[in-house]
Design a protein around this nucleic acid. Structure first.
Length: 422
RNA sequence: GGAGAUGUCGCAUAGUGGCCUAGUGCGCCCGCCUGCUAAGCGGGUUGAGGUUCAAACCUCUCGCGGGUUCAAAUCCCGCCAUCUCCGCCA
């Protein structure tokens, strides 16, 4: 959530930010009204409560008729206090609900508009020319079959559509990627983490996933727990309700966890293979830092994502995501998209978001700098989403006989070439 | 899953309805004293919110949420967490 003071100090900026996202500025005005209502009810409650406390102090000292009179007076007051308290709580909750629905105002650096209004920042590497090499590239599912690496038929049999088994070389490839990613992140100064993938509503809500993205989240009704769609959730909530010393920042964590996504509203999209699935594993980078450092850290996260794709020798481009496509929490987002030969286009494999103080306010994570305590900034970025990375590696590294040549960085973990099994 | 115990300020502890505006010790911060250090002395030390130019004042905060009461750290109910024991289990 945003700093509520902005509603009083700079509502025009908030209205403009809503417009840039393609959202309605009316919410801002509803919030201003709700804030006034809330403050009014707080003042009313505090006035009667204060009176009640003062009278209460007199009672033990009073005697006889005087005491009886006081008791009658306070009894009446007690009802008023209860009423005022209830009104205050209600106004507070109404305000809070609205406040949590307001997205983080997009950075003015983010392109205006929706999903298609991104700006390409850079393009790296050259897609292979399979025609020149004299063969038609196979897609990752076909390669997965030849290599004995991916089994979607049995995934569907056991768990349903958009599930898969990684088998043999596929399983080994994920483990190799995981090892390389965790080792690399460690070298960069990240603390490796294996967080819980099942979290309480507060963690899910705090990271902003129960807003417009709620339909995409798996919920276990019986236990009121959520399956995380990314380890961003447990990593962000890791320091919830804590105050961190400024000199302990930045804190950088690399979390490895499964990710569960309902993929509501994506029926018919990417139905072939394992590009879009209900579950995959991922190594995610997460940073707690000061608000002043957030923008610079965002660039660093992008730099690490690029270094990772460079190490995997994949052709990719970097886009600056438009304001309307940022989600609830981010002020700016960079996506890295790897070239997928059989789709003849770039597809998202990683994403780096600057959430400034938005998540920290919801999760109550603060930094102490000298005498002041204030919400810190959180950022997250994909290091390696396994399934999409496997898709990219197989398709880009394939050879005419169906074998796949792997990037040098992976050789120590899995060898140089994946060979067909038959 | 069953039984019991515990949950108070950074830490440790006191507090069984109104002198709690939560005391004390440790730690930490500021100052005094002192060849230096230690000790000693004095002061400060949760966080959030409201009124306000400000100063100041006020409200909330004793695991969380309800309730009883004129009044709750204290009594009652529910939940959560931790510990001990039993059962089950990778």
């Amino acid at each position: 959530m945003i700093d509520p003071r902005l509603l009083r100090d700079d509502p025009d900026t908030l209205r403009e930010a809503q417009r840039r996202r393609g959202a309605s500025p009316d919410l801002v005005d509803e919030l201003i009204a709700a804030d006034e209502q809330r403050r009014h009810s707080i003042a009313a409650f505090e006035a009667v409560r204060s009176e009640q406390k003062n009278l209460g102090k007199l009672i033990p000292k009073a005697k006889g008729e005087e005491k009886q009179a006081l008791l009658a007076q306070t009894k009446e007051l007690s009802a008023k206090v209860k009423e005022a308290e209830a009104a205050q709580a209600e106004a507070g909750q109404a305000f809070d609900a609205l406040l949590r629905a307001l997205p983080n105002p997009a950075s003015t650096d983010a392109p205006e508009g929706g999903e298609d209004d991104f700006v390409v920042l850079d393009t790296v590497g050259t897609p292979r020319d399979f025609a020149a090499e004299g063969f038609e590239p196979r897609d990752h599912l076909e390669l997965g079959r030849i290599l004995g690496a991916i089994d979607t038929e049995r995934g569907a049999k056991v768990s349903g559509a958009r599930f898969y088994y990684l088998t043999g070389a596929g399983a080994r490839l994920e483990l190799a990627l995981t090892q390389l990613a965790m080792n690399t992140a460690s070298e960069w100064g990240f603390t490796p983490m294996i967080p819980p993938a099942l979290v309480k509503p507060s963690a899910m809500e705090g990271t902003g996933f129960l807003g417009q993205a709620a339909d995409d989240v798996y919920h276990l009704e019986k236990d009121d727990l959520y399956l995380v769609g990314t380890s961003e959730v447990p990593l962000a909530a890791y320091h919830s309700d804590e105050i961190l010393d400024a000199d302990s920042l930045p804190r950088r964590y690399a979390g490895f966890s499964p990710c569960y996504r309902r993929e509501a509203g994506s029926y018919g999209k990417d139905t072939r293979g394992i590009f879009r699935v209900h579950w995959f594993d991922k190594v995610e980078m997460f940073v707690f830092t000061t608000p002043e450092e957030a923008a610079a850290e965002h660039e660093r996260l992008l730099g690490w994502e690029r270094a990772w794709l460079d190490a995997l020798e994949l052709p990719y481009r970097v886009i600056d995501v438009a304001a309307g496509d940022l989600g609830l929490s981010a002020v700016r987002k960079f996506d890295c998209e790897a070239w997928i030969p059989t789709q003849e286009r770039y597809r998202e494999v990683s994403s780096a978001s600057n959430c400034t103080q938005f998540q920290a306010r919801r999760l109550d994570i603060r930094v102490r700098e000298g005498d002041s305590v204030s919400p810190l900034a959180t950022l997250n970025g994909t290091l390696c989403a396994m399934t999409r990375t496997i898709v990219a590696l197989l398709e880009n590294g394939q050879q005419a006989d169906g074998s796949v040549r792997l990037p040098a960085a992976l050789h120590p973990f899995i060898g140089e070439v994946l060979e067909p099994i038959t």
